[in-house]
Nucleic acid binder design. Structure first.
Ligand SMILES: NC(=O)c1ccc[n+]([C@@H]2O[C@H](COP(=O)([O-])OP(=O)(O)OC[C@H]3O[C@@H](n4cnc5c(N)ncnc54)[C@H](O)[C@@H]3O)[C@@H](O)[C@H]2O)c1
Ligand SMILES: NC(=O)c1ccc[n+]([C@@H]2O[C@H](COP(=O)([O-])OP(=O)(O)OC[C@H]3O[C@@H](n4cnc5c(N)ncnc54)[C@H](O)[C@@H]3O)[C@@H](O)[C@H]2O)c1
Lengths: 212, 212
DNA sequence: TAAAATATGTGAAAGTATTCACAACGCTAT
DNA sequence: ATAGCGTTGTGAATACTTTCACATATTTTA
């Protein structure tokens, strides 16, 4: 397979959601034109993205909604479940644990960890909070594949090191800090302050720039 | 000013954070080489990004840390405060309201709204929860500039319409849904499921692709 | 004061991503 | 059957982004 760009992966996620909607609306087939319209893209972009993975459409007709949805699910790895662990059961962590869409998409939170004695051992939305000191051991035992990090920035690097040493190399991080990981580890950081900064940039530069 | 790309804005946010660290570490000046190293970029990229906004460095020496930080703050609109309102005080909304980094960066949550009678009128982390039926009126009264949306996907479009009609055209959305807004509205959507999908794509395609 | 070292700022080159444009194909109607 | 329409799949063209490479400026060393 040739290299797929970040943007293409991002758009596949968009297509996936749109196809779920189309399915609910009882569409049987959909054209690149309609897909593009719903996701504010161009039809050529949609076709090009899909063409990287094969040819799923029928000329004159479009793409079969169910099939294409399944195909994209399989490309994105959504045709199975993933064992997820969460570290840090604070404001963000609690929200994530109770979010029902994740398991529905195949991301099942199997274990949650904290270092606060008051939280450890307590039930949190049906999951027992484990002591973070047992992190590496339990990540291995439960065959965890993805770790979500919702600890304070100051604790993030040491937790990441532990996670990596336990052999988990796929991490979603909510702490607003630059983490060092080996090359074979896939780390994504969600930084909400940076999202707001995009907005304040846009507000500050209204009119000064051509377009955002 | 010429058009600035999304990626450049994103990197300015990175530089800003790195400069804050450098300031704490008592750096007086910093080279594009050091900035690049800390943010995993190339020195040329750093210099090019900054060059869009002026020339802030000294040849042979580098960039003055304090000055460059202030300059980037001003470019990103972080040299002032912004009036923010939050709609939807559930799991995500509560986390955001209690997050102390936002006000520290100038994003001050002035009003919070919900449609749940049990929440309206109650104090939530020092802010009274308003009835969403008064949304437009109160957004105007409080000169709200940015709205953060943390309502269920099903309610998001109608809230957005109301927000836009109240004249607020800068929105950060956490609902996983495609929202329609007029061209002059800047809308960013944070979709955590899509972040996880990037990870599952990476996991599913290990070895098949050259690089992620 | 001059030479050496360092590091910026920026056109030009290289590399990516997006859009164009059209041949190829399959459906529909007659 | 066949004409006509609609839509894909894809090379080629265009647009955008990143990296290169070097002239230029400043500091440091001697
Ligand atoms: N609250 C928000 O809205 C928000 C927004 C953006 C980013 N963030 C970031 O997300 C992260 C979590 O934020 P939060 O508001 O949930 O913080 P929080 O303080 O509510 O929760 C952090 C949790 O991590 C636990 N913890 C601390 N050190 C730990 C360790 N070494 N191992 C395991 N657990 C540990 C704490 O006991 C606590 O339960 C932070 O990095 C924060 O900067 C939060
Ligand atoms: N919880 C998570 O971890 C998580 C993760 C990703 C995305 N999201 C998304 O973020 C959004 C909020 O999630 P949540 O978990 O906080 O949900 P939630 O149900 O806990 O909170 C939603 C809040 O919005 C209020 N609300 C509903 N309709 C409203 C309306 N018309 N006007 C004003 N308020 C209204 C509800 O009363 C409730 O307080 C959802 O769209 C969800 O899909 C949540």
């Amino acid at each position: 397979m040739r290299k797929i760009s970040e943007s293409t992966i991002h758009r596949l996620s968009l297509y996936y959601r749109t196809l779920v909607s189309l399915q609910r609306e009882r569409y049987i087939t959909v054209s690149s034109r309609e897909l593009a319209k719903r996701d504010k893209l161009t039809p050529a972009q949609v076709r090009k993205d899909l063409s990287f993975f094969g040819s799923f459409g029928t000329r004159g007709l479009g793409y079969p909604v169910n099939e294409l949805k399944d195909k994209i699910a399989s490309i994105l790895g959504l045709n199975r479940t993933w064992n997820v662990a969460l570290v840090g059961v604070g404001n963000v962590g609690s929200a994530l644990v109770s979010y029902k869409e994740f398991p529905r998409q195949g991301f099942v939170i199997k274990k949650i960890f904290d270092n606060d004695q008051r939280k450890i051992g307590k039930n949190h939305k049906g999951i027992l909070v484990s002591d973070v000191r047992n992190l590496a051991k339990e990540l291995k035992e439960d065959r965890i594949e993805i770790v979500v990090l919702a600890v304070p920035a100051s604790a993030a690097q040491s937790v990441v090191d532990e996670v990596v040493s336990a052999g988990v190399h796929t991490i979603l991080n909510f702490a607003p800090t630059n983490l060092k990981v080996p090359d074979n580890v896939v780390l994504r950081t969600v930084n909400m302050a940076m999202e707001l900064e995009h907005l304040s940039f846009a507000l500050s530069n209204r009119g000064k720039i051509k377009e955002l």
